[in-house]
Write a protein that binds this DNA or RNA. Sequence first.
DNA 1: GCCTTTTATTAGTCTTGCCTAAATTTCTGA
DNA 2: TCAGAAATTTAGGCAAGACTAATAAAAGGC
Lengths: 240, 240
Amino acid sequence: MIAVPTISVENYLKAIFSLQKDGEERVKTKAIAESLDVSLPSVSGMIKSLADDGMVEYEPYRGVRLTKKGKKTALRVIRNHRLIEVFLVQTLGYSWDEVHNEAERLEHAVSDTLVARIEAFLGFPRFDPHGDPIPTADGELHRREMMTLGDASSGMHLKVERVLDQTPEVLQYLDRVGLRPGASCRVVEVLAFDGQMFLDIDGQQLPISATLAAKLLVTELDDDSERDTGRDDVQAVDRS
Amino acid sequence: MIAVPTISVENYLKAIFSLQKDGEERVKTKAIAESLDVSLPSVSGMIKSLADDGMVEYEPYRGVRLTKKGKKTALRVIRNHRLIEVFLVQTLGYSWDEVHNEAERLEHAVSDTLVARIEAFLGFPRFDPHGDPIPTADGELHRREMMTLGDASSGMHLKVERVLDQTPEVLQYLDRVGLRPGASCRVVEVLAFDGQMFLDIDGQQLPISATLAAKLLVTELDDDSERDTGRDDVQAVDRS
DNA sequence: GCCTTTTATTAGTCTTGCCTAAATTTCTGA
DNA sequence: TCAGAAATTTAGGCAAGACTAATAAAAGGC
Ligand SMILES: [Mn+2]
Ligand SMILES: [Mn+2]
Ligand SMILES: [Mn+2]
Ligand SMILES: [Mn+2]
């Protein structure tokens, strides 16, 4: 009897995975509780059960770290989530601010073979609509170090790679001003005292708060490369 | 706080719905237990909770009947299930023997808006790949009285409308011999002592047991109408 | 109409996953 | 260093949904 992870277990593993940014640091109980909106004792209880199942290493009061097995399970769920997001956008015309909640439930209900078919149907996309990388079927996840827009300085020419916020309001706003993965922009000015930025995107002047800038991951662009061009490694998001 | 039905509750309601063929007869505890492969006390317990929620009328030892509310919920889940089946066949190239198990889980995870989009994307199909009718968003289900193939007699010219069995083996066999919804055939002979039938389909002679014949719903065809033609009211199932 | 078989319910238990309140450990800052 | 604050675990409960064993009702056979 192989014990299939419950929806709750899958959500905990996913949360732990994304909270332990690199693979080293231990994730605190409080962080998990906030991420999943459950009480601290609920997390303590689940942690013990995950440790019993060999999903996490656990040292009381010190936090948890995913084991190989836990990481594999988390990556499977994340893979499901991101492929479902791409599929909903590409096939059913969903916009990128609508897919997250839908995928949050479907990720637990799809079979491995359904996800594999979706992946093939989509032509093996490498990123989801928010620029998040898609793990392969055997649990490989290509992760790149990137700076946030907030870390950029005046004059830099940037390409938007990824959005770290899933709230519909933020995504709708970013879409409206053109800050989608693949878009490029130039930093015109950064106010030293509050981090307020002014971007040039498509010839338009665009003010961006430090708060919002922290949620965008970007890469620096050579100054001689073309501007405002989609990436070939990201699914184009057509939402005219 | 509106209490969203759990997966378990949805499965019970769906089972009760399909066991109460017309809307009148009361469904027995034993039938539900067998249909869902759970123990009799589990069913007794769930029935009481469904009755408390106003999903069923319940008279101890006499069985249950869905209320309006229970029927509505059941039909929503059945609608989800059948539209998902069509979608998997049409969009991802699933065959009709693969879709049932996948849909059995997805039916509980899709939102009403996702299902509505799927329905529109597919062009508002009226039947699923097995010929089962698809309830509308407001809970209408067009049900027709039909005879089974087993009820047919020698010489009758028939159209296959619906398959009542979801097991992959049966569906694969039916597909192989061409007995899909939309196909037509003629009854050549019926053996009186065991109900064994011999059909003419596409000029081929085909023996069908009484057991299998009981699982096919058919309608009688005028003798002057064309033979072996797809129905326009059923999604074509292309599985060459 | 009784007696046996079948069906159904009740009683009691278990697991999962959540909660609040209380106790405990760790962290932090004066 | 050490007291108060913050984080964590323990204790104890609850609800859903499954189970087995025991009891009760309904149905069938003669
Ligand atoms: Mn989820
Ligand atoms: Mn995403
Ligand atoms: Mn189901
Ligand atoms: Mn079907």
